[in-house]
């Protein structure tokens, strides 16, 4: 096992324990040609374990950028991002993959299921990279499918499901490796309001069971389910509404 992998498994207590996500003066600058785009400008924020965040704000305010950073898909240009005790900026690509695999689950606006795989195989995907045995993965996939109410659709292909069902498969997949943090970029963006509401019920339930959820959304109706609402403006935190804020 690599050092990074070992680190990823044993969170450092001093950083606040499992599930704590902390941004310290984080900036993200994109260089496009000769000009610079400041997508994030010195953001400092703690996401407590078990909290449910909705990140809101106008287009281009840096919501997706923040979520990508939180998701270890990108590194900050400046500042520190602490996840499960690691300073993400210092980790190499393999260690970032390992962090995503063990600590983070992604839910996307466009579901992002792999079309040539069945529902079962899609849910098993993180377990495959965790090198679980086929038997254990199959059992786990069945459990997860049941949890999102799709136990009878395991052998279907994603295209054969409705949007809401696809998003629930995506949630099952995000849950398979039992990460403590779920990241969602407009999870209801492609769904009608009734279906979106169902998805939000599911997320709320997961949050009650202890998952930390960070979700980007445009809609106040959706954001209402979160315990915290973070308003972004021009790469900065505009204001925070909700519990304790």
């Amino acid at each position: 096992m690599t050092a990074a992998a070992r680190l990823a498994r044993s969170p450092e207590p001093s950083a606040g324990g499992r599930g704590v996500v902390r941004l310290e003066n984080v900036s993200k600058v994109y260089v496009v040609g000769s000009s610079e785009v400041h997508a994030l400008r010195g953001v400092t924020l703690d996401f407590a374990a078990g909290s449910f965040w909705a990140i809101m704000g106008p287009s281009g305010s840096g919501k997706s950028t923040m979520l990508n950073l939180l998701g270890c898909l990108d590194r900050p240009t400046a500042g520190r991002y602490l996840l499960a005790g690691h300073d993400v900026a210092e980790l190499n690509d393999n260690a970032l993959s390992e962090l995503r695999l063990r600590h983070l689950g992604f839910i996307f606006q466009s579901f992002n299921l792999i079309p040539q795989l069945t529902v079962r195989e899609n849910i098993e995907l993180p377990l495959y990279y965790l090198e679980w045995s086929p038997l254990a993965s199959a059992q786990r996939a069945e459990q997860m499918a049941e949890r999102v109410g799709l136990a009878d659709r395991l052998n279907h292909r994603p295209q054969e499901l409705s949007g809401g069902q696809q998003q629930r498969v995506a949630i099952a997949r995000a849950l398979a490796a039992n990460p403590e943090i779920l990241l969602a970029d407009e999870p209801t963006g492609n769904l009608d309001s009734a279906t979106g509401e169902q998805i939000m019920q599911t997320l709320t339930e997961l949050n009650r069971q202890g998952k930390t959820i960070i979700m980007v959304t445009h809609e106040a109706d959706i954001a209402r389910h979160a315990s915290h609402r973070l308003h972004m403006r021009d790469g900065r935190i505009d204001r925070i509404e909700g519990a304790g804020a």
Binding site: R100, F106, P126
Partner: peptide, 16 residues
């Protein structure tokens, strides 16, 4: 490309 992005987001390493 998208499949690759999904796998990477889930936690696949480059070598995988």
């Amino acid at each position: 490309t998208r499949e690759i992005g999904i796998r990477r987001a889930i936690g696949a390493k480059r070598a995988q």
